[in-house]
């Protein structure tokens, strides 16, 4: 979908004063965030800092306690939108893929276009074919998800999300559940997507992606955005002690080479 109102608003994603707690446990403590159309933002931070919760609030998988979340200039936190309306604006990629196991790869992709967008089956199948080609999975349209490797499943999950033609794609640690040798193929698809102009917010431990692909890196800790800047600045010259600390534990040499994968080393964070 295109976002007619996005230009008029502050960004295609606009979050103001977002607070969210579970029971008495405050998880997001006042998030302000604006993302421009076509921007690729990486979100890094220690485990438990609220990154997933933020992504889930951005696609209304979680309700919020206070503040506003607007996508494409439309406030989605007001609760007057159906799930279909939200899905046309934003897609979410899960760490665990969450493909539908009981239907084929093709049907995984076409289900929502047919049921929600009202596409004909023929049209939806064509869309599925072109999306599968885009993620390099053309030969697996008839396979069941469990016949695929994790990397292949995640690529199908990306195709499935794109089938709703969202303006924004959120990724919640899309490669964290993958065997190391399968990470690259998913990152490649994400990089292509970024190059195509998709607005993306990517929670990741893949510092190579954050550095090389994103326009901006956000460091979150303890429910707040501690620091954000272009990757060149954030990685080489972090302003806050907490950011420095986090990066030092991740990257022995903060200015080290690109495409170093660090995901394995920091699982426990």
């Amino acid at each position: 979908m295109d976002c007619p109102n996005a230009a008029a608003s502050r960004g295609i994603i606009s979050v103001k004063g977002l607070h969210k707690s579970y029971g008495g446990n405050a998880v997001l403590k006042g998030i302000d965030l604006d993302v421009k159309e076509g921007e690729v933002v990486s979100v890094i931070g220690p485990s438990g800092s609220g990154k997933s919760t933020l992504a889930r609030c951005l696609c209304r998988l979680e309700g919020i306690d206070s503040g506003t979340v607007s996508l494409c200039g439309v406030e989605i936190s007001s609760g007057s939108h159906g799930n279909g309306d939200i899905a046309r604006m934003v897609g979410l990629i899960f760490q665990q893929f969450n493909l539908y196991p009981h239907i084929s790869v093709r049907d995984n992709i076409t289900l929502s276009p047919v049921r929600i967008l009202g596409m004909s089956r023929g049209e939806a199948n064509e869309l599925a074919s072109s999306l599968l080609a885009r993620v390099g999975m053309s030969d697996k349209a008839d396979a069941r998800p469990r016949q695929l490797s994790g990397g292949q499943q995640q690529r199908v999950a990306i195709a499935r999300a794109l089938a709703m033609r969202p303006a924004i794609m959120l990724f919640d640690e899309p490669t964290s559940a993958l065997d190391p040798e399968l990470v690259g193929e998913v990152l490649d698809v994400m990089e292509q997507l970024a190059d195509s102009g998709m607005t993306m917010l990517v929670i990741t431990h893949e510092m190579s992606f954050a550095k090389d692909v994103s326009d901006r890196v956000i460091f979150m800790d303890d429910g707040v955005i501690v620091e954000q800047s272009p990757p060149a600045i954030l990685f080489s010259n972090p302003q806050r002690a907490r950011t420095r600390q986090f990066l030092q534990r991740l990257l022995p040499r903060p200015d080290g080479g690109s495409r170093t994968r660090t995901g394995d080393d920091i699982d426990g964070l």
Binding site: V90, N98, Y100, S112, I116, A161, M164
Partner: peptide, 14 residues
């Protein structure tokens, strides 16, 4: 798994 509900929901299903 709850992930199936969540996937269906973010893909627009009621």
């Amino acid at each position: 798994p709850v992930g199936q509900w969540e996937a269906a929901r973010v893909l627009g299903l009621s």
